[in-house]
């Protein structure tokens, strides 16, 4: 156990309760591990708790029980100045689902990307701008767009700005909430290629929340299926998506529409959502 290097991200026994009673439980004993250079897909329907899990990992939702370790060091107990110091290290980055809401509408794209570096107080202002420009280029955005406000970008461009903002601080772990579900195929491919490159070139551990099984099939090494706040299945992407074991996963896989024509109609008995 001690011989293997610690995973970049390891969450164990995560419990999130909305209130004080067990009935209000949103997540129950959820574990999630992502190693450097690994892409983990987190699948689940609306209300399954997948966004809550990501928010709990970054400390936006309070943990009722469980631990979150980054490179082996527990981070869930951090508070106040220690928490701020950890966050400023930029080691764990979270990309919100809707960049239109997670980017300040009155702040230019470049300033948004600079923000993380400015808060950390890295180098001189010119230096930070250069790094922000580099981050924009890394996600395939023209740095000339940096002077625009987020409202003046297309959906695909905004999503890439949100990713660039996370990349600028050089994270070890990147959590992305539905980064491609609102994008058309060309933009989706572009974002997926960026993630694939990050994993290879910078050894980032990536957790990608998505209900787009096609995208996950393309880039995820492992997938974790969350159903009603619990992990019901996990394993290598190919195994889970080709030979799903849990009824929910099976239903999920048969639901994916194919460009090659109508699927068999679903049998509407059984699991109903």
């Amino acid at each position: 156990m001690t011989a293997a290097p610690a995973a970049a991200l390891q969450a164990d026994g995560v419990e999130v309760w909305l209130g004080r009673r067990a009935k209000s439980r949103i997540l129950h004993g959820v574990g999630l591990t992502a190693r450097s250079g690994e892409i983990v897909g987190l699948i689940g329907e609306t209300g399954s708790g997948k966004t809550t899990l990501a928010r709990a990992i970054v400390g936006l939702a309070p943990l009722h029980a469980g631990t979150v370790r980054v490179d082996g060091t527990p981070v869930d107990g951090l508070r106040g100045a220690a928490l701020r110091r950890f966050r400023r290290s930029g080691r764990v980055q979270y990309v919100f689902q809707d960049p239109l809401r997670s980017l300040d509408p009155d702040v230019t794209v470049l300033d948004s990307v600079v923000e993380g570096l400015a808060i950390r107080g890295d180098g001189k202002a010119a230096d930070r701008r250069a790094r922000a420009v580099a981050a924009l280029e890394q996600v395939g955005l023209d740095p000339a767009l940096g002077d625009r406000l987020p409202g003046r970008l297309s959906g695909g461009q905004r999503q890439r700005v949100a990713i660039a903002r996370a990349l600028a601080v050089d994270p070890r772990v990147l959590l992305l909430d539905e980064p491609v579900s609102a994008l058309d195929a060309a933009n989706r491919n572009h974002v997926l290629r960026v993630l694939d490159r990050l994993r290879h070139e910078r050894e980032v551990a990536i957790v990608m929340i998505s209900h787009d099984l096609g995208s996950l099939a393309g880039i995820a090494d492992r997938v974790v299926v969350l159903y009603r706040g619990e992990v019901v299945e996990e394993g290598p992407a190919a195994r889970v998506l080709l030979e799903p074991e849990h009824p929910y996963t099976q239903r999920l896989v048969t639901s994916v529409p194919s460009i090659d024509g109508p699927r068999r109609p679903l049998i509407t008995e059984g699991v109903h959502v």
Binding site: D184, A185, L213, G214, A217, G218, L241, S258, I259
Partner: peptide, 11 residues
């Protein structure tokens, strides 16, 4: 673009 990623790739 559509076919680049998809469940079919796994097969």
């Amino acid at each position: 673009d559509h076919r680049e990623y998809g469940l079919d790739r796994l097969v």
